[in-house]
């Protein structure tokens, strides 16, 4: 049983139809991770122990257990507590929550990279805490993290096949279904691999360009001193 071009072409349209749902799960999960990651980073850095400790513990737990276990838990265990979600919703929440713990670390490193002098100047000018965060610290801590965020977006995209475990019909499940109908798996799985490559590679290339660009800007700023 060798590669059959005609067959391969014939299944391409069906595979392409699974792309939107794969992308949607990735993007929605990513947006959720970005939104959750920031308050999580702030909570972890907080001086209020009752806030920082539990959040740190929960984040550590989520980060150190496999995504697939979390997905199974949300999809198969939560319904016994009366919480029933569709595969897509579960997938987005699972991905988003899991990666928010990584993005929180990214945000944190961005925040920590803001020089102490920026905080001190804000204090000397009598800015409120909120103003210092929103207008001085965050605008300086987010841009340098953009390339790393981009990398996580790609990682999350490549993680979507895990969602097949909770019956979400994304690329991998579609390929498996095609394969099981015709008993030909070679073409379907190869094509899925190629599709992932075609979509990931340009994104990775873009992220790298962005990184170089931001790096150059950073160096220019640094060479003039702050």
């Amino acid at each position: 049983m060798w590669w059959d071009w005609n067959y391969a072409w014939s299944i391409v349209p069906e595979l392409l139809r699974a792309i939107p749902i794969t992308l949607a799960a990735t993007l929605e999960g990513f947006v959720l991770a970005c939104l959750l990651g920031l308050p999580m980073a702030l909570a972890k850095r907080s001086q209020l122990r009752w806030l920082s400790w539990p959040v740190t513990a929960i984040a550590e737990f989520i980060r150190c257990t496999p995504l697939i276990i979390q997905l199974f838990f949300y999809y198969y265990a939560l319904p016994s507590f009366g919480i029933v979600m569709s595969a897509m919703t579960t997938g987005v929440i699972g991905l988003g929550l899991h990666y928010s713990t990584y993005l929180a670390e990214v945000y944190r490193s961005g925040i920590d990279s803001v020089p102490r002098g920026q905080w001190e100047a804000s204090r000397a000018l009598n800015f409120s805490r909120g103003h210092t965060w929103l207008r001085i610290v965050l605008p300086q801590s987010v841009p340098p993290t953009i390339p790393v965020m981009g990398n996580y977006l790609i990682v999350m995209f490549k993680e979507t096949p895990t969602l097949s475990a909770i019956t979400l019909v994304e690329l991998l499940t579609t390929a498996k279904n095609i394969g099981s109908q015709s008993f030909r798996y070679l073409e379907a799985f190869t094509l899925v691999g190629i599709l992932f490559l075609i979509m990931s590679y340009p994104s990775a290339w873009l992220v790298r360009k962005l990184e170089v660009h931001l790096g150059r800007r950073e160096r220019r700023a640094a060479s003039h001193g702050r």
Binding site: P115, G117, Q118, E120, A121, A124, L125, N126, F127, S128, H131, R135, I136, P139, Q140, A221, G225, R226
Partner: peptide, 23 residues
Amino acid sequence: FQHFNLFPHMNIIRNVMEALVHV
């Protein structure tokens, strides 16, 4: 301060205005 501590993401006029407007 010794090391200026200007806000690098704001232009000069905004660096100077910021506290007048917000404080």
